[in-house]
Amino acid sequence: MKLEMKDKPGQLIAALKPISDLGGNIMAIIHQRDPSAAPGDTIDVQIMLDLPGSTLEPLVETLTAQGVNVVRIGEERLLIRRSVILIGHIMHTDLTDTVDRIDSSGLAEVAELGMVMPAINEPSSAKITLKSSSQEEIGRAIDLLRRVAREKDLLVIEPLEEYP
C-alpha cells in the first residue's frame, strides 16, 4: 500500500507499529526522500505487507486515525486457505463442474486437489484446498461447496476449526 505522512521524526515508526500490532509481516518498505522537500511537507512511503485475514480494514482505520493518509491499496493476494475432504463419486459427478463453480463464484479459488480412487465403483476420497482473501468469503465458498456436494451426493468433511 502507498501511504502519505508528515515529514517529521517518528512518523514512519508510528505508521509501521499498527501493522505488527495486528500480527502483520512487513516484507518491503520503499521510501525516496525528496531533497527539495521543506519541513512540514508530506512524504510518500510504499509498504508491501502480509496481513492475517480480515485485518486490512482495521489497519486502514488505525492509520487514518493517526493522520497517515492511505493513498492506494495494491492487489490483495489470496492468503487464507482452508482444506476439506470429499468422499463419493467425485470424478463421475463432473469434477470440472465442481471446481468451476467455486472458481467462478468470485469467493475463492481451488488451490489444490488431491484424489485417491481405490477401485471402479468405489467411492473416491479427495482433499480440496480453497484459497481466498477473507474469512468471510472462504466461509461462503465452503457453503457453496456444501450445496454442490449435496446435489452430487458427496460427503464433505470440514475442519472443526480454522487452521492454516
Partner: peptide
C-alpha cells in the same frame, strides 16, 4: 458409515485426523 480409509490418510497429510464431533 460413509468414511473411507483414504479420507483418513488425506487428513493425515495435513497433520490432522477425523473424529465424529457433536456441536
Amino acid at each position: 458409515d460413509g468414511l473411507t480409509t483414504d479420507a483418513l490418510a488425506l487428513a493425515e497429510d495435513l497433520d490432522c485426523t477425523i473424529r465424529l464431533i457433536g456441536e
